[in-house]
Structure formats: C-alpha cells, structure tokens
Design a protein around this nucleic acid. Structure first.
Lengths: 251, 251
DNA sequence: CATTGTTTTGCATGTTCCTGCATGTTTTTT
DNA sequence: AAAAAACATGCAGGAACATGCAAAACAATG
C-alpha cells in the first residue's frame, strides 16, 4: 500500500467515524504503529486533522455544531446562498438539501415569499418555522447524523410523491468526469431521487470543491443545470463545465 | 476513548445541561473520578469551563438554542423531564411528542443509552443529533408551525408502521371527564394514533394543566398510564385521577 | 544492468503521558 | 462535632510516544 493511499484511508476513516486510534489503524493497514504515528504527525502539521494522544480527531470536532457555525458564518457560503435565493419565485415547490450553504439559503428566504419548501433536514425546518408564508414539508425517515438529514426507504417513498420546480444542493465534490458525488451512500441514494423529480438542479460550492471526487456519485455533470461558485475558481475547469451545458454564476 | 474525545464530551454536556457533576461523568464515561477531576482541573486552567466543588459550570451561561423560551427554562418542566427520563431502558423504542417538556426530556437522555427515539418534532431531532447511541426516526409530513411538529396523512402512515414501548406527551389540558385534549385538530389526530401504537403512555404537566379542558380530545384518562406532575397539584383532583387507574408521580 | 542516493519502514531504546489506586487532607453536609 | 463527599498528592503499571539506526523499497543516473 502506498503512503498517500494510506493517508487517504486515514482521512476517510476520520470522516466516517469522527475519531481514530493509532493502534487500530496499524492493524487495519498492516503497518507498524510507528508508521501510523509518523503519518498522523505529518498530517497534523499539515492541518489535515487534530493530532491527540492515542490517535486523531477531525479538525472541527470541538464544534461540529451547525448552530455554532452559523454564528461565525463562512462569507463565501453566505454569498452562494444569496445568489441562490434570487432564483426563487412565489408559488414554487422547492427542495433544499442539508448542509451549511443550504441552511443559509433557508435563512435568507424572504419572509413574505409564499413557497413550499421540502427538506430532509430538521435544522432547516426549524429555521423556516419563523417564515409564516412558507409551507414546510419535512421528509421523514431514519435520521442520518453525519449528514444531519433523513435517509432510507421511508424518505425515498415520500420524495417520489413530490415534483420540484427547483432543487438546491451544497457541493461536496464536483468533477468533470466523475460528476457530483458525496461521502455517504445513503446521501447519494436520496439525492438521486431528488434529481429525477426536479425540473431544475442548482448546486452551490467553492473552488475547493470543484475538480474533486468522492466515493458515491449522485449524477453526472450534465444532469445539473446551474452551478453557483466563486470568482477564484480555476477558469479551465469552469470552461470545461460550461461546455457540458452547465450554467454558471460566479459571486 | 481518547482523552481529547472525553474532554470534548465534557464540554458538550456542559453546554447542554448547564452544569456537570464529576461523579456522574465518571460513570458515563467509564473512567475513575480521579481522571475526571484531572480533566476538569486542566480544562479549568485552560479557561474552557469554571471548576467548582463537585463538578463544573460553563464560563458564562450560554444558550445557543433555537427556541427563545428555552433561555428562561421553566424549572418545573425540567423536573418533569428528569422524572420521565428515568423510565427509559436500553433497547426500547420511544415516542417523544413536541413541546417544551418533551424537548427537555430529549436533552436529558443519557448519551450512552441505546434507544430508538421517534418524533415528529425536528427540534427534538436536532437536539438528539449529539447522542451517538440514540437512533432517531423522524416522522415526516407537513410541518405544523403552531405545534412545531409534523402532521397529516404522511405522518400517520409512518406512525402506523411503528410500535412503541413507551410514549411521552406534554400536557396542554387534562380533565377527569373530558380526558387529555389539545387546541388543534391536527395534533389530536396524530396523538390518537400514537396512543393506539404504544404499550405505555406517560403525560407530563403542572398543576395548572389539570382539571382543564381544550377543544380536541386525544384520549380519555383511562387510556393513559402515568402522570408526572408537581406536589402543588390539587389533592382532590389527583385522587380522582388515581381512582381511574392512572399512576401518578409527583416531583 | 549496476550503482547511487533518497525515502520509507520496522525495530530497539529510553522517555513521557495517562490512569487507577492508596493515602491523607479539605470541604460540605448532617 | 461527626460523617460523608470531594479533593490533592504520590506512586506504579501500562500505553503511547520520540529518537536513532539499519534494512528495505524505490527512483534516478550512468
């Protein structure tokens, strides 16, 4: 196994489990603990994880709380959401995915706009409970904590009964060849159905998410309609995405 | 469990409960009290919390909560919830209704208790997203803002597929003759189904809610199993409720 | 292909850190 | 004032660690 491959595996595990033990990794990857320790130390210095005695934790483990993060909003994500909310028109039925950018989007919906919002994320439902004119449909099902949203058969059954004028997603990874992808199978499964049921798909994400891949593909690029990203995004990547027919807004 | 992980957990608990006891943490985290004390002392020196005899307090009373009401917690409702949470046993499937008392109940579920919680209230789902061992099933449907919960056919369909070992409700009105009732038809409709599907029904509410009526009956008193109320409740009313077979806990 | 240099890895060494227990002290409660 | 709870301290075993070194793996060069 290659060094880089091993370190990728470590990051993946960390993402999934939220913590990792050096001893456990040594067995899993069939190398000595010393090697793992050296990996963890290097990755710690590179600010890819938080090195602690016995293993490592994700960088932001201290406040994985979306609610906390909303107090220190990422200005980029806020701008994406601001651009996104302009696409909404009265009377529409809109799906909003989970994630920080989508949460901003929900927050920014004008209180006097009469639309129906469908979401599997209870945080977004709570956020919208102050919007008197917004009708909220919550997708039920098993609550999947890593993505803060509902997943599973129940969720999909509910989804299939609804058609959306427009759907919004935050981007975890978007790649010209490998499409729009995320870390968890359960998430991908749901999003695929959403895309089938939607007239228009809007994805929002920064330059760091473009030309990146993840394990579970949701859809190829040509299934998407509009990308909201930032000015700093690589112009070559942007142009190639445009060539597939994807409309692009830079903020 | 990693040291850093443990300290994260302590901070989280502190955020949620507003206070922590060293002895309690030792049991929860399965380490000796000495270890907890050392953690607390270190974190105190690092200015992450205020160390006090017996445990620790947050630096400044923060309440990152969505509902404004929670900022001025009603100590009675907190006590009801404390009594309620003692009824939970590992492996159970539990329904938790919406409302302030129920929200406290959710907050107070031990983080190491492995249960399945079903709720139609997204707030409760968010609250429980920190509880690693708790499986959450969110009842979807149309979000009914006055009651901060989901209602409607979709919700009922999901409900009918689940049986509950125990169900918890906050009381809006409980009357010897007119039973357990609420203000909204939609709410009553859901709660009726819940009661059909539950082995045990627990209702929680103060003296002001007893001997009171509201427009939509959920169930007669004899359909309920346990009432958690306060000492100040009228002894005559209590006795008459007892005569119907209702078990009563006063806190 | 052989050689050279670099990087990575596992092992051995000694060190540091974490934890639980025992001891005695302080604080709180009765 | 006595009892109980919470505490501080020191100690010991074990786990995790850093370090140096040599073998192995790899890449690059002639």
């Amino acid at each position: 196994m290659l060094l880089a491959e091993r370190q990728n595996h470590i990051l993946e595990q960390l993402n999934i489990k939220g913590k990792i033990y050096a001893a456990e990794l040594a067995i899993q990857l069939k190398v000595s603990e010393d090697t793992i320790r050296r990996d963890l130390n290097k990755m710690g210095e590179a600010n890819l994880l938080r090195r602690v005695h016995g293993g490592a934790l994700p960088l932001q483990q201290t406040s994985p709380d979306y609610i906390d993060r909303l107090k220190n909003p990422d200005p980029r994500k806020k701008r994406f959401a601001e651009a996104g909310v302009l696409l909404l028109k009265a009377g529409q039925t809109v799906l909003i995915d989970s994630g920080e950018t989508c949460l901003y989007l929900a927050k920014l919906i004008p209180t006097d706009l009469q639309i129906t919002v469908v979401t599997g994320c209870p945080l977004i439902a709570c956020e919208l409970s102050h919007h008197e004119k917004v009708e909220i449909i919550l997708l039920g099902g098993r609550f999947f904590k890593p993505a803060l949203r509902c997943v599973g058969k129940g969720t999909i059954d509910m989804l299939r009964k609804i058609r959306f004028d427009i759907s919004f997603f935050g981007i975890y990874a978007l790649h010209l060849k490998h499409g729009f992808s995320v870390n968890y199978f359960e998430e991908a499964e749901i999003s695929q159905v959403v895309i089938e049921q939607s007239d228009k798909i809007v994805v929002m994400g920064g330059a760091d998410k473009l030309d990146k891949t993840s394990s579970h593909q949701i859809a190829p690029v040509h299934a998407l309609d509009l990308l909201i990203t930032e000015n700093t995004a690589d112009i070559n990547v942007i142009n190639k995405l445009k060539d597939t027919g994807l409309e692009i807004i830079k903020v």
